[in-house]
């Protein structure tokens, strides 16, 4: 069996993108790492008393405060003179990050704590049953942004969380996708080699919430990237470094596998709207390998 700091036997759903990404992150970070985890699926499925999947020191406090707890852990390690040899990671889902946790994250960034923040972005409140979050994409059907005779689902664009992180002037911001495991681990290692606050947002499909087959997790993740709907890039000291796409695919290729977008498939106007979002990403982040 592969040596891992995130032990199997947890209770994540089959095909859970977050469980895969969390293992990639902690294994890249290594055993000299402490984790402050926000409330959410990851915390619930990995630490049901008296069992834990975690092979590193790990603390869960509340939903919105993992970055403040991590700040305190970092301060404690600094006091003990141990910070240089130990990584501190704060991690949570998209709701815990972009909605309820935003204030505490902003504080952690502004204060310059030497902490890597990882947001596992499955684009809705999955732990409570697929409610809309600030990172739910446009026109996605969730239980609190359902499509209906007068609605196509979530009417608002995804909150630009990586841009918000970058606006704090922190040295490293990146997006990643569970569809590209080596890229996640490279970015985690790179982030941890830099002093100060870092932010990585990882796109993690949720078969239950996105309503795709659980065997499709990697394919769906890759299609999000290949269509331009989930741009992968780094801001290295503010400098944009995109992950280029060699063959850009139309957005339908990504949308068609997912129940949350099913209501759009017979609506050319809606597809056009989604394509415009992808096109804008491709232009904004310079994603095309051929341009």
């Amino acid at each position: 069996m592969v040596e891992t700091l995130f032990k199997p036997g947890h209770t994540a759903c089959a095909g859970c993108g977050q469980a895969i990404a969390a293992r990639l992150v902690i294994d890249a970070a290594g055993k000299n790492t402490m984790v402050a985890n926000g409330t959410g699926c990851l915390e619930v499925f990995s630490t049901k008393y008296p069992e834990s999947s975690w092979g590193v020191p790990w603390i869960h406090s509340l939903f919105e405060n993992c970055s403040a707890v991590a700040s305190g852990v970092e301060a404690g390690l600094k006091y003990l003179g141990k910070k240089d040899s130990i990584n501190v990671i704060a991690q949570a889902g998209d709701g815990g990050t972009a909605d309820i946790g935003l204030q505490a994250i902003s504080g952690m960034f502004e204060r310059g704590h030497d902490v890597l923040y990882v947001c596992y972005d499955n684009e809705a409140y999955m732990n409570t049953g697929v409610q809309r979050s600030g990172l739910t994409p446009t026109l996605s059907n969730t239980t609190t942004s359902p499509s209906g005779s007068a609605s196509l689902g979530n009417p608002r664009p995804k909150k630009p969380m990586p841009e918000i992180a970058a606006a704090h002037g922190i040295p490293y911001v990146a997006t990643a996708s569970v569809g590209y495991p080596q890229d996640i681990q490279r970015k985690v290692k790179k982030a941890l080699s830099i002093k100060g606050p870092k932010y990585i947002q990882i796109h993690v499909p949720c078969p239950l919430g996105w309503r795709h087959e659980s065997r499709m997790t990697f394919d769906v993740a890759k299609l999000a990237v290949e269509t331009g709907l989930y741009p992968i890039f780094e801001y290295d000291n503010g400098k944009l470094i995109p992950r280029k796409i060699t063959a850009i695919k139309p957005v339908e290729e990504y949308l068609k596998y997912q129940g949350r977008f099913k209501h759009l498939m017979k609506d050319p106007e809606a597809i056009k709207e989604m394509q415009a979002i992808a096109d804008n990403n491709i232009k904004k982040y310079g994603l095309s390998a051929t341009v």
Binding site: S71, G72, R111
Partner: peptide, 25 residues
């Protein structure tokens, strides 16, 4: 000789000292 952490809310003040205390400090 202490780390003095200026936070953006009392929620975070309590969370920071929770984190500090969790390292045995």
């Amino acid at each position: 000789n202490a780390q003095f952490v200026n936070v953006e809310s009392e929620h975070s003040a309590a969370s920071v000292v929770l984190g500090g205390e969790s390292t045995g400090v």
